[in-house]
Nucleic acid binder design. Structure first.
Length: 241
DNA sequence: AACCGACGCAACCGCGGATAA
DNA sequence: TTTATCCGCGGTTGCGTCGGT
């Protein structure tokens, strides 16, 4: 059973805001603030709007510190990086971008960056899976395409990666293919327990990087073979040399 | 010029969490 | 402790605009 609506839909105006409504809301908020209650605000301000609608309008559009221009390359990088790490937690991502709202970031991702990710790798299936998953979901519901989609991966990094915390070193740099049902990752593994991820996955396939780091954290595995054997089972992943 | 599909963005919906009563 | 209410979030929808045919 769902919650009761916050207001009677028949009694509030919906759709695009008029300049007069914007002005009324801005004027009221400048004079009184929200008084800690968005629900009662429209009544006090003389607006025939739902309180949630007022809040959204203010936070996503009318706030004086909102940045309305196009996203910069640096902002692109931040969004992509954070999405890879934390998934679709738009408010958390937006908090790293002064002047940008969660709605802005979400729209920008859905309309631009998701496609950019898709076209910069041939791993369309991986991008789709990455874009559709939520960080709150267990990592077992990765959807895979029905036919194999090879990913072109960055060239192998032959350096040995050190864990800066305990100085232990794990280096795996042998040619390897990872295979999900319908998804083939070809390249070299380059795993470090220090940075908690498999670098080529991080660059080419955010979802797998996320799964990898989550599973490592959850199980406390500290060697690649152990981790791979555990990681592979729930995802139908196999390793071939 | 008209049509139509793709795109971008503002706004809405519904849920979970926090908190007050 | 329970219930009601509000806030904030992420997903989704609706609509205006633009570009191609």
């Amino acid at each position: 059973m769902g919650r009761n609506p916050c207001c009677e839909k028949s009694k509030v105006k919906r759709g695009a805001w008029s300049p007069q409504e914007d002005a009324t809301l801005i004027d009221y908020l400048h004079k009184h603030g929200t008084s800690g209650n968005w629900i009662s605000l429209p009544l006090k301000a003389g607006l025939q709007r739902c309180g949630k609608s007022c809040r959204l309008r203010w936070l996503n559009y009318l706030r004086p510190d909102i940045k309305h221009g196009p996203f910069t390359q640096e902002e692109d990088n931040i969004i992509c990086s954070l999405y890879t790490k934390i998934g679709s937690r738009w408010s958390a991502i937006a908090s790293h971008l002064p002047g940008r709202t969660d709605n802005d970031v979400k729209n920008y991702w859905n309309t631009k960056l998701k496609k950019k990710l898709t076209t910069t790798t041939t791993g369309k299936a991986a991008a789709t899976a990455a874009a559709s998953r939520s960080t709150t979901n267990p990592p077992t519901n990765v959807s895979a395409p029905t036919s194999p989609v090879p990913l072109v991966l960055p060239s192998s990094n032959n350096s040995v990666l050190a864990n800066t915390d305990d100085q232990s070193v794990h280096s795996y740099d042998e040619p390897v293919n990872f295979t999900l049902p319908g998804l083939i990752l070809e390249g070299s593994s380059n795993y470090s327990s220090g940075n908690n991820s498999c670098p080529f996955m991080d660059e080419s396939c955010g979802v797998l990087s996320w799964i990898w780091s989550q599973e490592e954290e959850a199980i406390g595995a500290d060697n690649n073979a152990d981790l791979f054997s555990i990681f592979s089972k729930p995802h139908g992943l196999s390793q071939t040399h």
